[in-house]
Design a protein around this nucleic acid. Sequence first.
RNA 1: GGCGAUGUAGCUCAGGCGGUUAGAGCGGGCGUUUCAUACGCGCUAGGUCGGUGGUUCGAGUCCACCCAUCGCCA
Length: 543
Amino acid sequence: MARPVYVTTPIYYVNDRPHIGHAYSTVAADVVSRYARLRGKPTYFLTGLDEHGLKIERRASEEGLAPQDFVDQMAAPFRSAWEELGCAHDGFIRTTSAQHRDRVQALWKLMQDKGDIYLDDYEDWYCVGCESFKTEKELLEGNRCPIHQTPVERIKERSYFFRLSNYTQPLLDYYAAHPDFVRPDARFNEVKAFLTEGLRDLSISRTSFRWGVAVPDDPEHVVYVWLDALMNYVSALGGPAKEGEAPLYDEFWQSSETITHIVGKDILRFHAIYWPAFLMSAGLRLPTQIWAHGWLTVNGEKMSKSLGNFLPPGPLVEAFGVDVLRYYLMREVGFGQDGDFSHRNLVNRYNGELANGLGNLMNRIVASIVKKSLDGRVPNVDLEALQDVDRQLIDKATATSNEAAKHIEALAFHRALESIWELVSAANKYVDSTEPWKLAKQDDKTRLEQVCYTVLETLRWLSVMLFPVMPGKCNELRAQIGMGPFLPTEQTDQWPSAWGGLRPGTETRPATPLFPRFDEAQERGIMERLGVDKDVEPESSAQ
RNA sequence: GGCGAUGUAGCUCAGGCGGUUAGAGCGGGCGUUUCAUACGCGCUAGGUCGGUGGUUCGAGUCCACCCAUCGCCA
């Protein structure tokens, strides 16, 4: 029995509209979940929204709205963004939901029962933007927040505290026992370094605003937004709960093989330190991995409202198509590293890899040779009678399948795609060296059939291996080689491993090219529609 | 300031335990095919492997120091 997989994105703060950074995290999580499903594992993919906090309360009142109305309004674009991007989440958690609020309070009580929560005074500088306190020494001149550049506020209040200091050693022990707990390694080192200085207790309630979850039995206090927010991963499944009370929680939290939280590097500390400490205190299971990815710049510049380069995913999807955008996001930069989103590089990869590489490979075989010389049908071949060149390509496909799986499991999406494209390239070389068009002229039917079958079956493998990244295009590809759409089946591992899945006699359905190449004029048109000045765009990712 | 990382061809990057001519993709140049989306395929890039000094028979690969860039230090 394949054990369940649980993968999450951060819950996005509804103060922003969705942009390419949100899309990056969410697409990555979608790829992980689609891959897991393809492997036959029961899978749950969660994303959602963080809707509480002082900043929301203020924004809502600026807009003349009740906070709930404001967040309802802001939630819609996120939902539609994920739909547009083909991100098939199983759950969409909102922290204002009754279930979530209720489960946060349940967590609080568990921590309280453990004796880890106490009441005391707290006074320090507070940044509304960060929703967190700042120490004197990290402030900029004029008591401004180093992240938001805005002035911080002096806040003194009665606050509940969590005995985080008790968890320094337990966390270090946990890290030692789970060397893959935080990825990439460099980030794990930072987390460990932070711990070695010893943890201070953490203020986990506020009285300065109302928009949040009330502290149980003391409604003057609102639960600290990060405790509230982190809890989404468990509350969305209905936990914490006794066995049998919340089936999703039992399956995907308690019994999961992996629980992977994909996060941006800016919120790593909350996930790698606070969250496990809260869970330890409450006596709950910990996640298996916190994966901190890097930031994307846009055409070499940091994305910001003041620069006017805020990049929502919608227009990109319209211009390039969902799968192309997903491919680019996963291919261009190593997960965990910072990188650049560049329209120019996107077009270059599209033309070079998708159009010239994969698209042309399929087209030359399906729409040309098989159609003209084999009556458009998958030929019948004796797999035992293949030649060495054929076997070499099959071996390459097998090696690729193993390697790509290894990389995806390590969330090294760019490596997986790189390795898959070695197979695409090998297949194009194979076609060149076997020259099926000559075989057709020479009437060497048997050999022609062997060659075409080998390429078609390679394309079938590609349609599966690329499915997590490009589900729509892979199904189009499959249609052209005569296959039905790909359907994951629980408990059935469908990752390619056996050669010969294509049924002889099946009718292929050549259609328009999968990835029609952009010529200069089209590229210019797209850039204009997107408002990108192509000529001004830097040649490379100069930062 | 403390801790950690990075610095390899025009660009983006690979280069376990030190060992013959330092690699890939893209871009550039040359050639070639025509089945294909003017696509594919082949050849080509002569880069002091940030700098200096060491260890060694031998270092991009280990050590020290320096320079630059970046991250973390509630």
